[in-house]
């Protein structure tokens, strides 16, 4: 079921202007407008100056294109007393993303490998517990994790947040890797063991080289999930370490000062650019990732 998203089969419809087709494409286009509208509004608002926003409507394209709002959002917008723009949040998000990505994907891959190829008594029970964890509302675990991180001396630091991301990424990613590794041909492992390869040898020299697609899928899930996270960022880091989403919300929803809608929309677009880029470049793999994760999870 996971890989069933294939291209349509059979002949193309013959008359492109049949009433049925007009209705079909009409519906598709109307829905496309609903889905594309926010992206369009974000873009045009971010390219206008405030005078134009006050007199015009939000759907009209900019009369005079200005990039000032983007510059301001990136390097001057204020959160509280800091006025160095979203660049700080971007830096934090990158510094959170890279270790979280590496740690969560490698832990999940290794665990999936254990569960697929080296089961021991009780391993399936632990796996079941791990999967149940995917359904526990985060709110239940927020405070226990605060205590765990405080005991480890990591509360408020970037590394604490990295650990939290790794923990919550485990259920879905372990499932993904386990299901992929189970499907690899068993003869390969037998041959490798005859040749003297052990646990780590098989993992690094046989399993990993054969599993590039699933690493990409898991990586995509992790990049978008970690970048888009808000709750963990706000709970487990101090203001100077806030990720981009938290800083964005603080900039846009701050109560003091005059609302600069063009700067707000430029900031919003900047924050959305990373996951959008991942989405547009990964295309089918993204679809495959969420379909696999969703259907099985």
């Amino acid at each position: 079921m996971t890989a069933a998203v294939t291209t349509p089969r059979g002949a193309r419809p013959k008359n492109p202007f049949a009433p049925r087709n007009i209705m079909l494409y009409g519906a598709l286009i109307i829905f496309s407008i609903y889905y594309l509208l926010p992206l369009y509004v974000m873009l045009v608002t971010s390219l206008k100056d405030m005078a134009e926003i006050r007199v015009g409507n939000i759907f009209s394209p900019p009369v005079e294109i200005t990039f000032q709002p983007w510059v301001k959002a990136w390097s001057e917008a204020c959160t509280g007393i800091n006025c160095d723009g979203l660049s700080r949040g971007f830096g934090n998000s990158v510094r959170i993303l890279i270790p979280s990505l590496i740690l969560s994907v490698s832990v999940a891959a290794l665990t999936g490998y254990v569960l697929a190829c080296w089961r021991f008594r009780g391993s399936e029970v632990f796996f079941g517990i791990l999967l149940l964890g995917a359904f526990i509302p985060y709110q239940v675990l927020l405070y226990p994790l605060v205590i765990i991180l405080r005991e480890m001396g990591l509360f408020g630091s970037l590394w604490g947040l990295v650990l939290v991301h790794t923990v919550f990424a485990m259920p879905i990613n372990v499932l993904l890797f386990r299901n992929y590794f189970v499907a690899l041909p068993e003869e390969l492992f037998k041959a490798a063991r005859v040749d003297g390869a052990g646990f780590w040898g098989i993992f690094f020299r046989i399993v990993i080289p054969m599993s590039l697609p699933i690493f990409v899928v898991s990586g995509i899930i992790q990049v978008t999930g970690i970048w888009n996270d808000f709750l963990f960022g706000v709970v487990y880091t101090r203001p100077e370490n806030y990720p981009m989403t938290v800083q964005l919300n603080n900039i846009v929803n701050s109560v003091q000062g005059v609302k600069e809608y063009n700067v707000n929309m430029a900031a919003t677009m900047l924050t959305g650019l990373v996951p959008l880029a991942v989405y547009f470049f990964s295309g089918r793999l993204f679809v495959r990732g969420i379909a696999a994760g969703a259907v099985k999870g």
Partner: peptide
């Protein structure tokens, strides 16, 4: 193309989603 259009919002965070619609 249509599938890409219908799915791209899913790549965005709820914060971005909320702020755009707050503006609209």
């Amino acid at each position: 193309t249509f599938r890409t259009i219908f799915l791209y919002p899913f790549a965005l965070s709820f914060i971005v989603t909320g702020l755009v619609w707050q503006w609209i």
